[in-house]
Design a protein around this nucleic acid. Sequence first.
DNA 1: AAGTTTGTTCCGTGACACGGAACAGCTCGG
DNA 2: CCGAGCTGTTCCGTGTCACGGAACAAACTT
Lengths: 240, 240
Amino acid sequence: MLDKAVTLLETFRPDGGTYRLTELAERTGLTKTTVFRIAADLVRLGLLERTGDTYRLGGKLFELGSLVPRRQDLREAALPFLQDLFEATRETVHLGVREGHEVVYVERIHGHDVLPLPSRIGGRLPLTCTGVGKALLAFSGAELAEEVLAQPLPSLTPYSITDPARLRTAIEQAQVSGLAYEEQEAALGVSCIAAPVFDGAVAVAALSVAVPRARYRPAQLAPAVRTAALGLSRVLRSGG
Amino acid sequence: MLDKAVTLLETFRPDGGTYRLTELAERTGLTKTTVFRIAADLVRLGLLERTGDTYRLGGKLFELGSLVPRRQDLREAALPFLQDLFEATRETVHLGVREGHEVVYVERIHGHDVLPLPSRIGGRLPLTCTGVGKALLAFSGAELAEEVLAQPLPSLTPYSITDPARLRTAIEQAQVSGLAYEEQEAALGVSCIAAPVFDGAVAVAALSVAVPRARYRPAQLAPAVRTAALGLSRVLRSGG
DNA sequence: AAGTTTGTTCCGTGACACGGAACAGCTCGG
DNA sequence: CCGAGCTGTTCCGTGTCACGGAACAAACTT
């Protein structure tokens, strides 16, 4: 029952999709009757909304999700530094945490020009294809890095690193410099520079700035990213 | 079953609270056994996390909540304008939508100085005590305003408007000027100025800037708030 | 008008959610 | 030292309610 309800909610993965009853039944593998009954319950509870014959995720889910303490506290602490970084660079700024072998984006702010990035708040991407992911990977212990390197490396673009040896040197470079670089590995035409955020000795998050390749000036971005990450790390250490 | 699970999740309302098993049983009114079983299921599904004997909301809830299309689309469209407004004023900026007789905050950005406000992303506050709420109330149809005015007006501070007649004139002023004002009605020492955001003819959201009373200069804030709201309205009308 | 969708209702069966009771591990205080 | 009061956890018999196949009505396409 609970499992089926969550399965149902999780089929809404893609961006802003709205589904019909039979479509949900197919995707979830549940009986049409079961989907009908559970969806009705979920609508009654506010987790799902229904207009006509199409379902979409409901407002209560947003409210509940906003209460998740780990995410919310981090976001609250990070926001001023993300603002600083955005103002200094005027480019798209990310904040992400690690979850397994993926990065979950907690915040993303940008101006009027929106880059065609695969990153979304609450979305997951492979650690190995993103700046934030690489920064996290470089400072989350050797055993995690080995785990990731042992598996086939996913790719989002033709530029995504799929060679473990190349990724290993990239990680080592990040560990030395305290900065992770990414060039068109997550989205074509977009490069990225990221830095880890520490709460004590372990990296709890990473932030990055993503820039259209034409405007990519690492020497100017690096100090800003590093400054923001260090500032946030300091606040986290003192605050909690 | 589903009802009980949602009840369980909803008891986490307060700020970042973590609860223990018996505490959850008391607050929900459910049996300790039932809470134990359902909580275990929720942990297994990632909606709840457990460390030691304390439960807190889980990361999957954050991910699901981030997918809610209504909220996410609005936030994405609004963010650039909120950034503009923040840069112009350097004060705390809000974006909220109406849900029943309450405002739900969709976004809130601020710099390093954090005001002691009751507003939280995903949080609900009475329409009548907040700038965003008043702006929504003024442009959501007369019948809604009458409904709200007919009920006893809640208050967050001693300055919150509890006299229906006073609220009525405030709403009328907002309808004329296109701006809603609020002075210490949501939090002591903080004033606020808000403007509605239209998608066509109906107000779908409102944005506001909250300022410490000492720095409150309405004449300077008003144009910035109005500009941001109009810009966002224009994008919404053309985009969807 | 026949056929194929859709969403919805009905209903008999059986699994499983339920909660009281009993258990185990802990921290008190006498 | 030991019992009283907590905690989280397990067990189990009862009864319910979730389940899905089948039948339905409505809106399409053909």
